[in-house]
Amino acid sequence: MSEQPVSCPREKRLWSEEFSVAAGEQSFVERRQLGKFLLLTSAAMFAGQLWLLAKNAFTERVHTIWPRKAVAMESDLAVGAAKVFSYPGPQDNCLLIRLDEERFVAYSQKCTHLSCAVVYSAGNRRLECPCHEGYFSVEDGHVIQGPPPRPLPRIELERSQGQLFAKGITVFGEEEAR
């Protein structure tokens, strides 16, 4: 009786059980999956840009007439003290600072670098942004140090019968609008 040759297909099947996906095919699948992932990320970046555009369109506010708003009583603020108030909208925080008996200044609290809230440092007589150590002069809001590209927007104040009113904003490089 002659010997039966070992069948090749059976060996192949055993090998295939260990590697159920052909290596070549797997590399295609992996690349396709990577491609899909990269495409999704790209779509997310594009969506981010569209969000920025939409935000730009919806938050563009042109203040041709600034409101007049009472912000504090003169007697409420000691020399060297600061007070946060909102002007012109409820979301627009500003800082009112009493420099001496007669002088008051007010600035937008939004840093002109990346919009962190600046705080008044009475000891150093300057406005400090804690995010990237940007410093502004308390006298006129100009940049003393750090990455902020422009001075702080200044709030125009008016004194009347012991009360302080905000009546406009002066932004560096723009015409004064009231």
Binding site: S42, A43, M45, F46, G48, Q49, L50, L52, L53, K55, N56, E60, T112, H113, L114, S115, P149, R150
Partner: peptide, 21 residues
């Protein structure tokens, strides 16, 4: 740039991002 007050960048950046997408 937008946070720094340069609002004009939003549109060209969105167009370029769309082209890249």
């Amino acid at each position: 740039s937008w946070l720094a007050g340069h609002r004009g960048v939003a549109l060209p950046a969105a167009i370029i991002s769309g082209v890249l997408f």
